[in-house]
Design a binder for these strands. Structure first.
Lengths: 344, 344
DNA sequence: CTGTTAGCGCTTTCAA
DNA sequence: TTGAAAGCGCTAACAG
């Protein structure tokens, strides 16, 4: 009962050899229907179940992929993982998830343990911008397994990635604010060493320029993506001589904090200040004063990342595939930034 | 370069045997310091990395655990998984996550594939109440690996679980509504075949009884945990002769839908109707009209579930451990149900 | 169509 | 302290 049945057990019972059993079980063409049926019946009777571990060792394919994210309990990452899992499970892969908590050492350790566990690929959103310089990171390339970045990527030649066009997102959001009549637009940014934040910032800047609004360094605040930091930032901003009339935040949480503080001071949204967030967290939609934001289609992003992995892992040519998928972000205009009705 | 170095490669270089290398690498006491240092140095030079797959096949321990949930992109499950992963990674385990989407066949298939992959344990929140009757489910017991339920459990003797006291939660929430002066309290329920929903319902009922309020079957609506269903339910309820003045919803999403519909009809919250939800989804806190709800401490739940697994997997005695951990839910009283100031 | 053999990479008796 | 050999469970090349 404790012992599990192997193909040898079946072989012995049937007085044949393990190889034959294996062939029968795998629908090999080189086997008679008679023995196959015999084997199948016996396998069933003995509750045989294939040990994938043995197969993995033999074939060098574990059928596991590692997914590395800063943390799983944000709607964005959870949704991406949802997409990855749905797609990969259907293709016989299991998804191992690991969280870095933005800790560099943990991120390294995760890569090492995943590699030792012989994962067939790694899909990751980097936490540490310098991660690719680490020795452990090179092990991924040495092992020749697919590496796919999603959302937060490092710029490495030959490595595929699935991201959204953060520049366009920043551009659209800012332009929208301008169209609403905003002239003094603040940008709540993040760690601009990360592409995602930098590109949003660049999009913001470009939109200002295109619309003939002077860029003001004082209007760009680098903060963490938290409610608390959003509040604090706004508290300071409202004391400026030229108090802002629009805010483009790189984070929904910071946008929320900003909104709370603004209301707290009796200032009206969107009449006095328009606000746009980022990520389409569920709460942005549910608020009475719904928050305009940018949707990143995370589930789709996950599915695509999984597809890229599948293409790559099934690619037998030596030709390296580098696929950079860039999704188009969708600006969701809601009450927090809608002064006047907009067509469409 | 493509080929990875094994202990045999190291052995050959050093003109010793693989067994010795293995011993050196594992800090076996039965080895001379000299050869150990030699091996370690060479291993390092050759970029040796242990193949956990071989170890797993040999030892019968994969160091992987399977986590099965309906879906990962709800704050509750994502948070539980966060707790599980944090705890288990620290103990050398990898976490494989699988989603059932509440599909019975998928749930069965997941169990089978996880078992074939030789996971060392399964932590799950069931989707299908009859899952334990399935043949595949028995494979878990035959394999003697730990099975731990969290949140949505099946009642099986000998199986550990980590849940919250849903009865108490329902009781507290309902009693709170009564204290606020509500007399006609509706309960938006779920699939009462699942313990969690049934217990919340029973707590609700008990609170009514204890406070001398007659139970009214018409006030219990079984719906899905969605905004849409919450809206629809309330639409009907408001047409009743005895329109409700309090709502205890088993889901935050349904509570939100209820609130939207109520406001839509120009009815005031909490003055005319008080509402309490369930799960402490982030949005409940962030709404201008913040929603009272029940916190289930999901991260802690995950950590504890992981602990129970670790205890079980390390338990060498044959004595079966059945551990039923029941966490105390916390009622969070917010604006949606607070008519008058409450002490504490 | 079936059997034999070897091997995936590692650990672990048993001898020496 | 080290070596030799077996085995975890499976597949695949080669014979027959």
């Amino acid at each position: 009962m404790g012992k599990k049945t192997t193909i040898y057990d079946i072989a012995k019972k049937l007085d044949i050899t393990a190889a034959t059993v294996s062939r029968a079980l795998n629908n090999s063409p080189k086997i008679s229907k008679k023995t196959r049926d015999l084997v199948l019946e016996m396998a069933n009777k003995m509750n045989y179940e294939q040990n994938k571990l043995a197969l993995a060792l033999k074939s060098g394919k574990s059928n596991n992929v590692g997914v590395i994210v800063p943390r799983i309990d944000s709607n964005f990452f959870a949704s991406v993982i949802r997409g990855i899992e749905e797609n990969l499970f259907a293709h016989g892969y299991h998804v191992i998830i690991c969280q870095t908590h933005n800790n560099e050492n943990i991120e390294i350790e995760i890569i090492n343990t995943l590699l030792n566990a012989q994962v067939d690929g790694i899909l990751m959103s980097i936490s540490n911008v310098d991660i690719y310089k680490k020795e452990s990171f090179n092990r991924i390339f040495k092992k020749q397994i697919p590496l796919i970045f999603f959302d937060r990527k490092a710029n490495i030649e030959g490595v595929s990635s699935v991201t959204i066009n953060d520049f366009e997102a920043g551009y659209k959001a800012t332009k929208h604010l301008i169209k609403q009549g905003c002239k003094k637009i603040v940008h709540l940014s993040g760690n601009t060493l990360l592409d995602i934040f930098n590109n949003r910032f660049l999009g913001y800047k470009q939109a200002l320029e295109d619309e003939g609004i002077e860029f003001n360094e004082d209007y760009v605040i680098r903060i963490k993506s938290t409610v608390e930091d959003g509040r604090k930032a706004v508290k300071k901003l409202l004391k400026l001589k030229k108090s802002p009339d629009g805010i483009f935040s790189s984070s929904d949480y910071a946008a929320l904090g900003a909104i709370q503080e603004i209301k707290n001071q009796g200032i009206k949204i969107p009449e006095d200040i328009c606000v746009v967030g980022f990520a389409n967290e569920p709460f942005t939609k549910f608020m009475e004063l719904s928050i305009s934001t940018v949707d990143q289609s995370p589930v789709e992003m996950g599915k695509i990342a999984a597809n890229v992995f599948l293409e790559q892992v099934n690619n037998t040519d030596n030709a390296k595939i580098e696929k950079k998928v860039v999704l188009t972000p969708e600006l969701l205009i809601r009450k927090s930034s809608l002064k006047k009705p907009v067509s469409n």
